[in-house]
Design a protein around this nucleic acid. Structure first.
Lengths: 384, 384
DNA sequence: CTGTTAGCGCGTTCAC
DNA sequence: GTGAACGCGCTAACAG
């Protein structure tokens, strides 16, 4: 690879002049500049990022901390990565994919100590996330995809759960449903700290309340089997529920099976929708399920962009508070943290329809329930 | 961040001694070494990767070229990335996620010119892939996940399609099926050059022939609708087919619907299996589909490992043949390219069963076909 | 406007 | 065994 010096020799100037000409660091005579640019082009010169980074203390490399794929891991997580990588590239940065495993903190200490990355992008952020403490303490720039319970001054991009829940409720209410059930993720060790599960649960309840429709969220099936059982239990306890929103893909499989088992059909007897599942997943179902598709790639892009903004905005203090332990005082540079909330996209499938007219004492074995009267008129799409 | 010099001062030695002690480059007195190590630990010293890279010409950073998510993109591709990243980490390397977009070659030229990466990992390799030419010509070390038509001296890790097809055929033949159909990916611009589609197609035909069972592969549905139509066409032309292997997830959805539409059931009336789909996807179906799950993470790991092996093996000639155009003469360092083929894992779901005893003139509307006689005896698992 | 010099943090010659 | 000096490729300070 040709270096700056090669270009300098070829253009008959000093190295520093080449550097200046190429970076616009200081004025260079037009003629000289032209010669330099031509020489650089002829040699196919590319600045060496390492040398530049060593000097400038800025590598233009970001690290995305990538958790070990747990169950329920899918397209969404991948799209964080691709979105972030693309945004980074567009802004002249690179994205390092750093797998997390046993000890995230040790991992982080190692990674940030290498001087290789300018900032870190966190995903799968838990409500209480030790990684954020470490990073702020270490004075490392970072942003989050998702957010902790109290993000404080940290930049983040997350799903707008309130808007998402409103859209979902508006959708089913617009179809005429009067009572909605919500199956959240299973309450295992992880989900207990998993932001989306918590926030979606809260916001669905709130949205249903605001819309004045009935609401049930007593079930948390984490598998197909549990999904089926939960649906049966739901019908037993709340036979007037006609619409169901499900967080867990596999649970939805069980629901569909249970619906079929009692001779019912979707959407005639039940409006079923996925929450936070990509439309690619929703299409795997039969019928194609309505879903609230998370804006994963967009969140990845935003996360990267926010981080870069911060990096460019003001070089973070060298080192930052080490072990002092005090919470960072005085807001972040240039007017407060960036907080971006983006709603899911409602993708209407073939599993949404008006509720059947009557349900009360109908014998399930009677088979074919009557078709709804109203034609499935234009479906409302909330705050898109 | 503390540097080598800080450690040197603290340990009362020269920088070069510290370097030597930490890297084992040359003998250092035990006592001195101990002092140095302690000083380093106390300061939390981490070698600066950029400085080291600048000096040693080796960054220990690999780039994974990540194609723009096309349709049909999923878990598999993500697992290449996570697998590669993990393997890299274990071996002391880092993985850069480099999104590809319009002009892959220009992208590559840029990336490799920066001096940031030691080698490149290619995925989604096409039968004729211009990227390989560029890389060999540019003298950049690389390996492939997947492979070109003629890989030549290039290291690669790919699916063992022959073994995979044998396993699939053995599975259905073991159940008693006598005629198998295979639905390949749709023949669009991409798939036409898409290795897995081609190779799977070839090997299934070969395996069926070797096993002496009937075989049909005239259909290439790329969507649910096409899948349904293809299934109907298949049944019309080959009513004696009792087992079906499908490459495209969405097509399988259509098949399932078509099966249900004619009052048939899986697996009683049709054994259905997915080919090259993760079990997570197979579980989304009802019934849970049997699948040949691609060893994606493993391929990612292997790809990274091979690349690193090559990097460590022998430092590639500086620059390599530039524009000379001649094919590289004399095999690669240390005995031939590495070629790793790993078979898919057969994950048996609820869609596999013996064929129904008779099929010929049976009226589909007759409903419930008789159950197969033989119990689904132990399923064969070919060359696992 | 341009050239010279210094130094980023490290590994690697060399003398000692 | 150890230390001092040089250079990787680049940017930044100063001189001219």
């Amino acid at each position: 690879m040709s270096s700056l010096r090669d270009v300098a020799e070829r253009a008959q100037v000093a190295v520093s002049t080449v550097s200046a000409a190429l970076n616009g660091t200081r004025p260079v005579a037009a003629a000289t500049k032209r010669r330099i640019e031509q020489a650089a082009a002829e040699l196919g010169y590319r600045p060496n990022l390492l040398a530049r980074g060593l000097q400038s203390k800025r590598t233009r490399i970001l690290a995305l901390l990538f958790p070990a794929p747990r169950s329920g891991f899918g397209l969404t997580e991948m799209q964080f990565a691709t979105g972030a990588a693309e945004a980074a590239r567009e802004l002249g940065y690179h994205l390092l994919l750093s797998p997390e495993h046993a000890d995230p903190i040790e991992e982080l200490r190692h990674l940030t100590g290498l001087g290789l990355v300018d900032g870190v992008l966190l995903m799968e952020v838990r409500l209480d996330d030790e990684r954020t403490d470490f990073l702020t303490r270490a004075g490392v720039a970072f942003s989050m995809i998702g957010r902790t319970r109290d993000p404080g001054p940290i930049d983040y991009a997350d799903i707008d759960f309130a808007a998402t829940a409103r859209d979902a409720v508006a959708h089913v209410a617009g179809l005429g449903h009067r009572k909605l059930a919500f199956f959240n993720h299973s309450t295992d060790a992880y989900a207990a700290q998993y932001g989306p599960a918590i926030r979606a649960g809260e916001e669905f309840a709130r949205a249903a309340g605001a819309a004045g429709i009935g609401y049930v969220d007593d079930f948390r099936p984490g598998s197909a089997e549990e999904g089926g059982r939960a649906f049966e239990a739901l019908m037993a306890a709340h036979p007037d529920v006609t619409a169901l929103a499900v967080m867990d893909d596999h649970a939805a499989v069980g629901v569909l099976a249970a619906v079929a088992a009692r001779g019912w059909r979707v959407p005639e007897d039940l409006t079923l929708m996925l929450v936070l599942s990509s439309s690619r997943v929703a299409e795997m179902f039969h019928p194609r399920l309505t879903t609230l598709e998370p804006p994963s790639a967009e969140l990845g892009r935003l996360g990267a962009r926010m981080l870069i903004d911060r990096l460019e905005g003001g070089p973070p203090g060298e080192g930052g508070p080490q072990g002092e332990g005090g919470p960072p005082e005085g807001g972040p540079p240039e007017g407060g943290p960036q907080r971006r909330l983006v709603p899911c996209r409602l993708v209407i499938g073939d599993s949404s329809a008006p509720p059947r007219p009557y349900h009360g004492g109908l014998d399930p074995e009677q088979g074919e329930p009557p078709y709804g009267r109203g034609s499935p008129n234009d479906l409302q799409n909330g705050s898109a």
